[in-house]
């Protein structure tokens, strides 16, 4: 059993027009090396699902700037003026969700459910006027469909050869839910250990969810400390 493969082999599973889920909240947990690989491969017309678009000229932003992304499904672009500008000029389509609702849409997709009901945004016109609603147990709620990906790209601190994953600190974020919700799940990892070397109690994502593990030879430069986030 060995899911460890080369970057090229793993990314050959990504096709034009795919919906790609990408882990990460800001820098931590973002698979920058896989994203650079996608950029190099030039796979286009992608729908990208990610919490945000990273900051200007980093990670997802590079794919959007290169015109490879048709649509972003996201929660907040406040730290990326470049992508906000492209959105305002109609160069990339953007669909926003409340952050936890995006997580739940993905979780529903991964759990084999078809949707969810929520009151988040129900009493604000902006959301309730643009959404399908239904009456349920005596109240009107917003209906959200489940979200699935063709591919999920994740970043983990550690994997074994079966694909059991361990995330570090706040680098966990969207990675575990996305691991459950895509047809093909690819994780870039900082360390690979043999089967049996991970304590079962410490595994965050069971190996059943993971198809390919790419061992990073070196961390991408985005994982360096960002000077503007030091106070």
């Amino acid at each position: 059993m060995n899911k460890v493969c080369s970057l090229e082999e793993a990314l050959s599973r990504v096709n034009p027009g795919d919906t790609v889920m990408v882990g990460g909240f800001g820098v931590p947990g973002t698979p920058f090396t896989l994203l650079d690989g996608l950029l190099k491969g030039g796979v286009n017309e992608l729908t990208v699902v990610k919490n945000e678009a990273n900051e200007d000229h980093m990670g997802i932003s590079k794919l959007v700037e290169a015109g490879l992304v048709r649509k972003m499904i996201t929660t907040h672009l406040g730290l990326n003026k470049t992508v906000i500008g492209m959105m305002n000029r109609g160069e990339v389509e953007v669909e926003f969700y409340p952050q936890g609702i995006l997580a739940e849409k993905i979780r529903a997709g991964g759990a084999g459910l078809f949707g969810l009901l929520t009151d988040i945004g129900m009493d604000t016109e902006l959301l309730s006027s643009t959404k399908q609603t239904m009456w349920f147990e005596g109240r009107e709620l917003i209906v959200e469909s489940a979200l699935k990906g063709d591919v999920a790209l994740l970043h983990a601190a550690k994997a074994d050869r079966f694909g059991n994953l361990v995330y570090a600190k706040s680098a966990m974020n969207f990675n575990p839910v996305m691991a459950t919700a895509a047809t093909t799940v690819i994780a870039e990892v900082e360390e690979v250990v043999e089967i049996g070397d991970l304590d079962p109690e410490h595994v965050h994502t069971p190996g059943a969810f993971v198809d390919h593990v790419v061992l990073l030879e070196e961390l991408s430069e985005e994982y360096g400390i960002l000077e503007h986030h030091i106070i």
Partner: peptide, 13 residues
């Protein structure tokens, strides 16, 4: 209009 992030859920709940 940078997107709602987590604010709506925090405000409401």
């Amino acid at each position: 209009a940078p997107g709602i992030g987590g604010a709506m859920e925090v405000a409401q709940k």
